[in-house]
């Protein structure tokens, strides 16, 4: 059995919209990845624990509530605390470019995908980044 790419798609925080994240989930699955979905309204602690138990390669965070600058740094610092910073963190939703820059520069986020991103770009990025 070959190694599979495992992705954990999460909805941290309080927004209740999961259409976008589910569309991404289907695209990743169709590209041959194993996609684990968290469900809505996850706390940073809970989703980091789940990501570790699932031993995923990629943690995908979908945030539309505007709370990304509070949630994402908390999540990546928890990953560092658990020595799991090798997990590739990507984010999507409505995240302004200035915030994306800070998240990537200072908070260990690998890539931020804006609204209207072609799902193929996400697939390609993950393959390229993981080299599988």
């Amino acid at each position: 059995m070959a190694a599979h790419v495992r992705v954990f798609l999460c909805k941290p925080g309080l927004d209740g919209h999961d259409r976008g994240v589910l569309i991404v989930g289907q695209a990743l699955r169709d590209a041959g990845m194993e996609v684990i979905y968290s469900g809505l309204k996850q706390t940073p602690d809970n989703l980091v624990e789940a990501a570790i138990q699932e031993d995923v390669d990629v943690l995908g965070l979908s945030i539309l509530s505007g709370a990304h600058m509070a949630l994402i740094p908390r999540i990546t610092s928890l990953l560092r605390e658990r020595e799991a910073e090798d997990m590739v963190v990507i984010a999507g939703g409505v995240i302004p470019a200035v915030d994306a820059e800070v998240l990537i520069r200072d908070h260990g986020v690998a890539r931020v995908f804006g609204p209207g991103t072609d799902t193929h770009d996400i697939v390609d990025y993950i393959h390229e980044r993981l080299g599988i």
Binding site: M1, H4, G25, Q26, L28, R29, D30, A31, G32, M33, E34, V35, I36, Y37, S38, G39, K41, Q42, T43, D45, N46, L47, E49, A50, Q53, E54
Partner: peptide
């Protein structure tokens, strides 16, 4: 495709704060 959508955790959210419960999702690959 070899891909899978593993959604069981959605129904187990009430367990997710508990480190004594270890949940693992597997594709039937």
């Amino acid at each position: 495709t070899g891909g899978a959508l593993l959604g069981d955790r959605v129904r187990m959210q009430e367990l997710s704060g508990d480190p004594e419960v270890f949940i693992r999702s597997m594709g039937s690959r």
